[in-house]
Nucleic acid binder design. Structure first.
Lengths: 109, 109
DNA sequence: TAGATATATCGCAATATTACGATAATAACT
DNA sequence: AGTTATTATCGTAATATTGCGATATATCTA
């Protein structure tokens, strides 16, 4: 039904999934990478950087903002986006926990 | 258009995104966690474990298999799934690279 | 071979995502 | 107040995802 049965999974599983979803599009990966590289927090140079229309970039930024891993600060006519210390930290921790729970050298079958 | 402009992003960005997408659903997170916990690689006890119909579980397993992070081995009438050493390793590396590129204590704005 | 068991696949419905043009909203400047 | 620049939101179209019943497929056992 395209509707995820969220309520039947744990809060942690849902959080991990939503943080992963934030990274589940190359444009959003590119945005994160750009914010990481240009520590000087960047606004809508992203629109120039990305091969997408301004409306689309804005939408991706909104999604990242909604899960809490980036934040925006109005600065004159433009907006300065950057990683949100708290949200990005939690996203990192939760994803790292899953990724590090299993090393790739564990055998099976 | 629901169609991602994949060709306009780097191969790395697309790979990161597709690995993240594999973790972007609580059921798939649960599957990974289950495979990690029960090192003895598990088949369709997952169907009993997850609050989803057999067809749906099978579909999620297929997605994980397609990105290469799990593999299945036929064992009698059932199938034994487990993390794929190579694929899971690459997924880990690529996601860790993004996650570790920025520590949460970096200031901005 | 016939049944039982376990998975995979098909087909469909409901909802979500991606993308963009058009337009609104906000803030600076004149 | 009017203009310009920047970003957000709306509306819409195309496609993807999620979920499941029904059915197919494959393997074991009697």
């Amino acid at each position: 039904m395209g509707v995820t049965k969220t309520q039947n999974f744990t809060a942690t599983q849902n959080k991990v999934a939503s943080y992963a979803k934030a990274l589940a599009h190359p444009a959003r990966v590119a945005i994160i990478e750009y914010l990481v590289k240009n520590q000087t927090c960047i606004c809508g140079d992203l629109v120039e950087e990305l091969p997408l229309a301004q409306a689309t970039v804005s939408q991706h930024l909104k999604e990242l903002k909604q899960v809490g891993i980036i934040k925006g600060e109005i600065e004159g006519t433009s907006v300065c986006y950057c990683l949100d210390e708290k949200g990005w930290g939690e996203a990192r921790e939760m994803l790292l926990q899953v990724l590090n729970a299993a090393l790739p050298d564990k055998r099976c079958c």
